[in-house]
Design a protein around this nucleic acid. Structure first.
Length: 113
DNA sequence: ATAATGACGGGAG
DNA sequence: CCTCCCGCCATTA
C-alpha cells in the first residue's frame, strides 16, 4: 500500500546501516525525502518491531545519540547491549563519540521528487 | 472529523 | 553540553 510504503523506505535505509555505526531518524527521513517526518520514522521503527522485522533498529537513535527507543526493545538493555556488542560505546543511555560512528544514509534523489 | 500521542528536528537561551 | 518551545506527520482513541 502507498501508505505503508513509507515504512518500507525506512526499513530499506535502516537495513543499509553498517555494523558498529549508527544514524539518526532525521537522516533516514531526509534520505527518503521526508526530513520533516522524522517522528514518523520512529513510528515505522516501532512497527518494524511489531512486524518482527530483522532490521538493526538498535543502530537508529535520535539526533543527540540517545537510545530513545531502548524501551521499545524486548528486555530493558537489549538495544544498548546490541550496540556494545558491535563496539559502540554507550554511557548513560547516550552514544559516546556519536559523531565519530555516525553514518549518513545516501540521499536518493529519486525520493526527492 | 477532531484531539491527543510519540523511537524527532531545529532554533533559541 | 542541556532545556524549552514550536512545527511535522502517521497512528490511535
Amino acid at each position: 500500500m502507498a501508505n505503508s510504503d513509507f515504512f518500507e523506505r525506512v526499513y530499506e535505509v535502516v537495513a543499509q546501516i553498517p555494523e558498529g555505526k549508527v544514524t539518526s531518524y532525521g537522516a533516514i527521513a531526509k534520505s527518503i525525502g521526508a526530513a520533516k517526518s522524522a517522528r514518523t520514522v520512529g513510528y515505522a521503527m516501532n512497527a518494524c518491531v511489531k512486524l518482527d522485522r530483522d532490521l538493526p533498529a538498535h543502530r537508529v537513535v535520535n539526533r543527540n545519540g540517545m537510545l530513545t527507543g531502548k524501551h521499545h526493545f524486548p528486555g530493558q538493555n537489549t538495544m544498548q547491549r546490541l550496540l556494545e556488542e558491535e563496539g559502540v560505546e554507550i554511557e548513560n543511555d547516550k552514544i559516546k563519540n556519536f559523531k565519530n560512528i555516525y553514518w549518513q544514509p545516501p540521499v536518493n534523489e529519486s525520493f526527492e521528487n
